[in-house]
Nucleic acid binder design. Sequence first.
DNA 1: TCTGGGGTCCTAGGACCC
DNA 2: TCTGGGGTCCTAGGACCC
Length: 407
Amino acid sequence: MEEIKRKILHIDVNNAFLSWTAVNMLKNGYSVDIRTIPSIIGGDEERRSGIVLAKSPIAKKFGIITGEPIYFAKKKCNKLEVFPGDFNVFIKYSNELYNLFSEYTNIIERFSIDECFLDLTHFLGNRNLIDIAYEISHRVEMELGFTVNIGVSSNKLLAKMASDFEKPNKIHTLYEYEIEDKMWSLPVSELFMIGKKTVPKLHNLRIKTIGDLAKTNKEFLAKKFGKHGLLMWNYANGIDTSEVNPKKEEPKSIGNSVTLPHDINKADEIYKVIVALCEQVSYRLRKHNLVANTVNVQLRTKDFKDYSHQKQLNYSTSSTKQIIETAKEILYEMYKGEPIRLVGVRVDNLENKDEIQLSIFNNDLKQEKLDNVLDSLKNKYGYNSITRAGKLDIQEIVKGKEKKIKD
DNA sequence: TCTGGGGTCCTAGGACCC
DNA sequence: TCTGGGGTCCTAGGACCC
């Protein structure tokens, strides 16, 4: 059977968080389009989460990069304006974008809040893929008020690489015959799935460009880097057979973590934060109708050393109480008293609650009823009104400690 | 100087079994 | 003295993505 050439688009919102915030502000009567000034969307410096989440093109010209501390960004540009982001706004625009794409195909993969893959192989009719790309681009700008980059190709990897070429508001093709021309001259760091730890290793092997990588012996890479080596080689050669997956998959793990406003070095104080995180995690677990078999506690020390411990249960659960109890055991086993900056709780080995055998489900009906009552209150009146786990309340827990010290 | 929070996948080593 | 080998499961840590 002849292999069908697939028709794939990768669509990526330009400076998503900043663009969406700008559109929303304009809609609410703000007179300045923050996309046209040196600006960023940033976290909260007071909460020690002050990093750059998105930057305007002018901010970029000052050398500001996503992920760097706002403190650094301000030093690079003293006129920089910092705005907070609102996740609900982001989700709203992300959904509007998705709805627009749905008019073209039903094979859409939401790769992240601001990126989608579209498979148009069987949805083109008598039209060209590239024409559809231009139409989508134009419609997004006119109807939604922000711009996108679109990569056009025959597989996901190439489409994704293409959408990352010149920005903003551009459409690029990267077909197989263009790989050598358009992709091989780029530095290896530009290739999807090559991060900052792998780049120096490749440089040591005299592999500087994606082309160098593509021409390196595949077995050699496999020996050096294992599976990742094979993946890199395939990607450098534009090989990717993965499908555009429209199914919204159940999560494989659910976790919440928080950076504390001040380092803490008392187990009992950390425990209070863990309780709040467990409430959050178990609530999300129940919302998905899932149960978990493994609980993981993560700590980050003040000098950014992460460590974690986990515990498997001999049953699966979504009970707040059981998750708190397990996390508590883990905490008191692992914690040695050093100053802690971040605390996280994650549950793993998830299964659908209705599908698992009763024998391995710890069925505490009384506890389950209590969780359900609290959940419905949270659904009705908002999460933070009922639980201690809201971000603010975690801040309060630690502030409470601060006050005690002052007293 | 200050460094988020949500995830997925892989690997190495130890425990344990036959 | 020298002391298998294969398999599975679990854990901790790390790399990567947005």
